[in-house]
Amino acid sequence: MRPVLDDSSAYEAGTDCATDGIANTTTVLGNEPDPDLTNNAATSTACPTGTLPPSFTIAKSASAESPQFVGPGDRVTYTVTVHNTGLIDCTDANPTSFTDDLADVLNNAAYNNDATDGATVSGTTLTWSGPPAAGASVTVTVTVTVTVTVTVTVTYSVTVHEDAADGARLQNLARHFDGPVRRSPPADRQCNVTVPIMSLPLPLPEVKAELDRLTAEFFDVFDNRDGRPADVARLRRLMLPGSVITVAEPKYLTYSLEEFIGPREQLLSDGRLTEFHEWETSEHTDVAGSVACRIGGYRKSGLLNGEPYEGGGTKTFQFVRTPDGWRISAFSWHDES
């Protein structure tokens, strides 16, 4: 007799060995008649030791109206999918669960209280627990709205060309583009600033004439040519008592009006500096209401200790219109080397 083993057991996926039972029967078949067929088979219902472990996968994704970026007020949807990949169902007593830390999300966004499928958010943690059947999936969604606003300040400057036409405009349009695709943004994301170019108005002829006269009289007070006495004291009438006087070159010094007058009266009257005078060679004057400024070149000539003395440089004047007329409130100069 040549025996043949027939080993078979019938079960379905997900069968619980301990609860439903699994019968394993082995039968010996021969090729010759067997007078006793009752001892040719054996059956075992012993349950394997251990418990079939649960198995599942979890996946998470985020979506928004724009696939590349979000801004304040935009909504972001987070989707978490749990799939039971095992052969047994999860139960209420032995559920599947997960937690999701939203701390880095809620720093810049607000939770919309809309978690699905029984999920909850406490503080910054999303929690879900449930009993998905074998092979089934559960999808949990939660949305947040971006709240953070970031302010970036960019500064830059331009210099108006000297030949810019009076009345022209500097027009600057700043636009906020959403991402790398440069679509035209809405009006609330554009800023247009227009600055008109205006030249300083030319002084009125009568004002300019008064300032020319005052400047010429200033230079005249130092003239002692042909034996005439210099009238430096006249500066007290041409200038305000608190005037500031500054020389920048060749050596920086500042004077009050009296500190300036005294030494020059002495120099121009004691014979050391004779045949001296100063005169303006160029000027530009701007007037704004009751104040004005003037800058110009000047020259000077005379005899210092009997030797020719020449020089020149630049003088600037500040003028103020007082109840008694225009006066010099400050002047400064530098001599060319």
Rank of each mutant, 00 (worst) to 15 (best):
V142P: 01
S122G: 13
D188H: 12
W128K: 05
P180L: 11
A133F: 01
P185M: 09
S184L: 13
V154G: 07
S129M: 06
A115K: 03
V150Q: 10
D117G: 00
A174N: 09
Y156F: 12
D178C: 09
Y156A: 12
G179V: 07
A164F: 07
N172C: 09
T141Y: 03
F177K: 12
L173D: 15
L170C: 06
V150N: 13
T124D: 05
T151F: 08
T159I: 07
P186I: 03
H176K: 13
W128P: 03
T139I: 05
L173F: 08
Q190P: 10
V138R: 08
D188W: 07
T149R: 14
T143S: 15
A119I: 02
E162Y: 11
Y156I: 00
V150E: 11
D114S: 01
T159L: 01
D163Y: 13
N113Y: 10
T151A: 11
S157Y: 06
A119Y: 02
S184R: 11
Q171I: 15
T143N: 11
P186D: 14
A168G: 14
R183V: 15
D178F: 06
T125C: 01
N113F: 09
W128E: 00
N172P: 06
P185R: 07
T124Q: 09
A165I: 12
E162S: 14
T149Q: 13
T143I: 06
R183L: 15
V144Q: 01
T147C: 04
Q171M: 11
R189M: 13
R189K: 15
G118V: 01
D114K: 02
V181A: 14
H176T: 13
S184Q: 13
P180D: 14
T151H: 02
A134Q: 08
E162Q: 12
L170H: 09
T141N: 04
N172F: 08
Q190K: 11
R175I: 12
P186A: 12
D166S: 10
T141I: 01
R169N: 15
T116Q: 09
V146W: 04
R182V: 13
W128Y: 04
P131D: 03
T145S: 11
S122I: 07
Q171L: 13
G179M: 05
G135D: 04
S129P: 04
S184N: 14
G118H: 03
A168M: 10
T116H: 07
A133T: 10
T125H: 00
V144H: 09
A115H: 00
D163N: 14
V142W: 02
N172Q: 08
V154N: 13
V158W: 06
F177H: 15
G123V: 01
A136I: 02
T143P: 04
G167S: 05
T124C: 01
R183Y: 10
F177L: 14
V138L: 01
A174Q: 11
L170Q: 10
E162W: 06
V160H: 02
P132T: 05
T116L: 03
G130W: 02
V146Q: 09
V152I: 11
A134K: 10
T125S: 05
G135N: 05
